[in-house]
């Protein structure tokens, strides 16, 4: 039996003396999508950033295909890895941000090919071809030579997805990928993400799009106050399907 793609054990993160996340665990099997919901300030962003150590957890461990992120395991002893090693481990996790975070001085295609060329040292022609295929995949082949400022929000986010996919991650983390978008652009981004899951991509998404979550995700996790209040089958994400009162009142607000 192979290890799950991602396993988070008891993740806690404090800012000052306040816990933003307290003892959250999560297991994600290959080819499944998990969505995280919760009111503002519940620690969703902090938790998902702990998963790739953009925030270093104060407690707990993250395992990527059995390998502890930020550590090497010698028997039962965990040893902190060097600063050079963490970037190598992190490559297995792609990330899509709420604010896209495209590189403003590069075209869409350059955004996608930069890391394969410079980090994986792929030949330029090969990275170029792969990059064009990915832009095609997100429906933006004709925008390959445009700069981020020349693209709409939805197009930028799709370039950001292509950029993350270019590193061939085992898991895609998305933090509210459509929250910064105008309503008419939400659909195009969700469609791309949905088709990725349909093709077997493993994904953890923070989202308020309950319809999308029900349709695409296998499981949901509802957080509040830095802890998991309820988790279950994403198809049950209705006011009558969930069991916890707090989940129900949250859903009543967003649905």
């Amino acid at each position: 039996m192979s290890a799950p793609v991602l396993e988070a054990w008891n993740i806690s993160k404090r800012f000052g003396s306040e816990y933003a996340v307290r003892g959250v665990s999560l297991t994600v099997e290959a080819g499944t999508a998990v969505c995280i919901l919760g009111p503002s300030g519940s620690g969703k962003t902090t938790f998902i950033r702990c998963l790739n150590h953009l925030e270093e957890p104060d407690e707990g461990y993250v395992f990527i295909e059995g390998e502890p992120l930020g550590f090497t395991r010698r028997g039962d002893v965990f040893q902190q890895v060097s600063r050079r090693e963490l970037p190598r481990q992190r490559r297995k996790l792609g990330m899509v941000f709420q604010q896209f975070n495209l590189f403003d001085h590069m075209t869409a295609l350059e955004n996608v090919t930069e890391a394969p060329c410079k980090v994986l040292r792929r030949p330029k022609a090969e990275a170029h071809a792969a990059g064009m295929a990915l832009l095609e995949r997100v429906g933006l082949a004709d925008r390959a030579h445009h700069y981020p400022r020349e693209l709409s929000g939805g197009q930028q986010q799709r370039v950001a997805i292509a950029r993350a996919l270019a590193m061939e991650p085992r898991l895609l983390l998305c933090d509210e990928p459509t929250s910064a978008l105008d309503p008419e652009m939400v659909h195009e981004v969700l469609q791309v993400l949905g088709s990725l899951v349909a093709e077997g991509m493993t994904m953890v998404t923070v989202t308020h799009e309950v319809g999308f979550a029900r349709e695409v995700a296998e499981r949901f996790v509802f957080m509040e106050g830095g802890v998991v209040v309820e988790e279950g089958d994403a198809r049950n994400l209705t006011t009558t399907g969930v069991t916890e009162e707090r989940t129900r009142s949250f859903l009543a607000k967003v649905l």
Partner: peptide, 21 residues
């Protein structure tokens, strides 16, 4: 924007790699 450095780091770049590129 610091978000661009974070994006670079999630793509496997080191801090100085992101600084330079």
């Amino acid at each position: 924007p610091p978000g661009q450095v974070e994006a670079a780091e999630t793509l496997g770049m080191t801090y100085w790699g992101a600084m330079r590129r």
